[in-house]
Design a protein around this nucleic acid. Structure first.
Lengths: 131, 131
DNA sequence: CATAACAGGATAGATTTTATCCGATAGAGA
DNA sequence: TCTCTATCGGATAAAATCTATCCTGTTATG
């Protein structure tokens, strides 16, 4: 029922970048400031990059920068980028994963809970967190 | 972000027992009816038993029965019994687990989200699911 | 073209999840 | 009391996932 450490790192990373949305920041700086293992963080930033949450710049003076304004990035976006859609139970995403779904009375609980949690997380934008 | 298969089994198991709250049912029957590996289910039932959600009866004609009425057992109770308190991030349960909590702007998100999810889950009683 | 910094694949160690097995224990009935 | 049955609980193991590192390749700057 918990987010992984990877996702926690990813959120802290985006949080850090949201503090200076117009600068290009090196992995090394984020790593040091946020206490995240550098090589692991590099992998995480690749995922965030593919999800269009950050943009990467190669070469000398390269690094990362948010790809959108902090007010357009939600916690949900970051979770989706690192570990896929939020759900308490896989059957809430894909009914076929569970042989019981059609006659299961609990299935609707997971579906509606998922909707609620997702809604809350979608509304938490990084602009709210900037110091 | 997902419940474990163990918890899913536990919920299905309690759901099954809630269908006949006055009978003592053997592990073997629950196992077969709900498609849960018997030895694994036996372990799960031990946890549910320690959590006072079910009561066990040993010996010939032994088995399990709900320890309370279905209307007094929530999905949250079962999750707590198998995998501990619901939380997206451990810092929402124990601040000390995270060196950032005091100055972390995101911490309150986890705390309030946890409260919301827990509230929803506490309100889902097994009496609502009986056919 | 030398250097700095990210990209991406491979890999490995740690941890957690998902089971299974077996001797012990307790209760029902003969 | 004896025996059979079913749970109890500890030990263990296989599999999956998470966490992290390394190395080679690619790109951009000056």
């Amino acid at each position: 029922m918990q987010i992984t450490r990877e996702t926690d790192y990813a959120i802290r990373c985006v949080y850090y970048l949201a503090g200076k949305p117009d600068e290009v920041t090196m992995v090394d700086e984020i790593s040091k400031e946020m206490c995240i293992p550098k090589s692991f963080l590099a992998k995480i930033l690749q995922k965030l990059s593919r999800a269009k949450i950050v943009r990467s710049y190669r070469g000398v003076k390269g690094g990362f920068r948010l790809a959108k304004r902090p007010e357009n990035i939600s916690i949900d976006d970051v979770i989706k980028a690192t570990e896929g859609p939020v759900a308490m139970n896989i059957c809430a995403i894909d009914k076929k994963q569970c042989g019981f779904s059609d006659r299961c009375k609990i299935h609707p609980v997971w579906v509606s809970l998922r909707k609620d949690v997702e809604g809350i997380l979608k509304n938490k934008k990084f602009s709210q967190f900037i110091a």
